[in-house]
Simulated assay, not measured.
Amino acid sequence: MMRIASLTWVAICAIATPGLAQSMPGMDMKGMEIRPQKPKPAARKAQSKAAPRHKAPVPAGDMRGMDMSPPARAPASAPDHAGMPGMDHGGMAGMDMSGPAAMSGPAGTDLPAGHDPAPPLPADHYADRFFPAEDMGRSREAMMREDGGQTIHQILFNLAEIQILNSHAGYRWDSEGFIGGDINRLWIKSEGEGTFRDGVDSAEVQALFSHAIGPYYNLQAGVRQDIRPTPSQTYATVGFEGLSPYEFETEGALFLSTKGDLLARLEAWYDQRITQRLVVQPRVELNLSAQDVPQDRYGAGIVDAELGLRLRYEIKREFAPYIGVSWERKTGRSAECARADGERPDQTGFVIGVRTWF
């Protein structure tokens, strides 16, 4: 009887021994395969010396010979900053992150405003280390001349047209040309009009020296010579020409004759593009006189005014035929002189011409 009890006890212990591991609280080892943890590449060499490699996986439920301790860590490669002064490892409270440590004062836009002259331009050129200085000097001089220092020229016929005004046909021209640089130029201007029946009624030529007073305006001074009507007159001239805001071309001048007569002229026009080739140009011109000039049939005040509208088609930028309308009106004593001469003080007509430059 005692022998049977002993065998029964041994059988019960043998059956209960594997279940001890499964009955551990919080652990379910059923079907679990324990694999060794692979070390990181950087610490593999160090770990191989510190801990042996794991053997083959242990079958589930067999805890014999298993090392449950955490894997050995590789030695830290970062330097020890514990000895650095001013470094607080508890939140880095002692470190000043407000700016570069090398800055001891204001710089850049933080500097106070002043009027010190600009620093001098560098006198040395890197290319001079590899090429003769004389050759590089000539090259730089040619570059400056070609990029703004060269002499340029142009001749422009802004108006070259036939006018059909009231009952007669006539013609008119307004041209100018210049030669010079970006700052100083010599201008030659000419304008006039006439009829096919009576010839040239008025014609003038101006020779002016022009000096740029800004990026958009030139100040001009010179002489004006009237060829028609006779007798001819000579005027001292001072004026301006340039591009006003909103791209209005403007031109004005004062004329003082050798007899003391003071005249003035104002012109403005605007090129409005409808397409890349089709352009409409409104134009206004005023002529004024400070006193009566009987020989020229002028009266004091506004002598005459002209409003025009021309539509041109640019076959090329340099060649653009146009059509349009023009209205002219004389006022004051000038209108009275026109009536006394049997002329109408106002005229409206059709114009056809070409605008060209080269």
Rank of each mutant, 00 (worst) to 15 (best):
A72D: 11
D96S: 05
A74M: 05
W187L: 02
E247P: 00
F131W: 08
G26K: 06
P321S: 00
T234K: 06
R172K: 05
V354A: 10
R297N: 12
M97R: 10
P294S: 09
E318D: 11
K189F: 07
G299Q: 07
Q47Y: 06
L111M: 15
F157V: 06
R228A: 14
Q206A: 09
A160S: 12
R329Y: 04
L288E: 02
F358H: 05
A133P: 05
I164Q: 01
A264D: 03
G299W: 10
I34H: 00
A74Q: 08
P59R: 14
T17A: 14
E343H: 13
A253Q: 10
A320R: 07
Y235T: 00
R64N: 09
L278K: 03
V10W: 09
F248S: 03
T8S: 13
I183A: 07
Q272H: 14
E306F: 03
V303E: 12
S48L: 13
Q281C: 02
T275A: 08
P245C: 12
E146P: 03
P59M: 11
I34G: 01
D292F: 10
L156A: 07
A305T: 14
E306S: 12
M2R: 13
R344M: 05
R145D: 06
H211T: 14
D346Y: 04
R312V: 09
M97C: 06
D182P: 04
K38F: 04
W173E: 03
D135S: 09
W187Q: 03
G180I: 06
E314S: 14
S104N: 13
V293M: 02
G91P: 04
P71H: 01
E285L: 15
L307R: 04
A142G: 00
G239F: 07
I183R: 09
K316V: 13
A340N: 14
Q225G: 07
M143F: 15
L243E: 06
W327Y: 15
N158R: 15
A207E: 11
Q225C: 03
L243D: 00
A300G: 09
A46S: 10
R185H: 07
D88N: 15
V303H: 00
V205E: 04
K55T: 07
A320L: 08
S6G: 05
A101L: 10
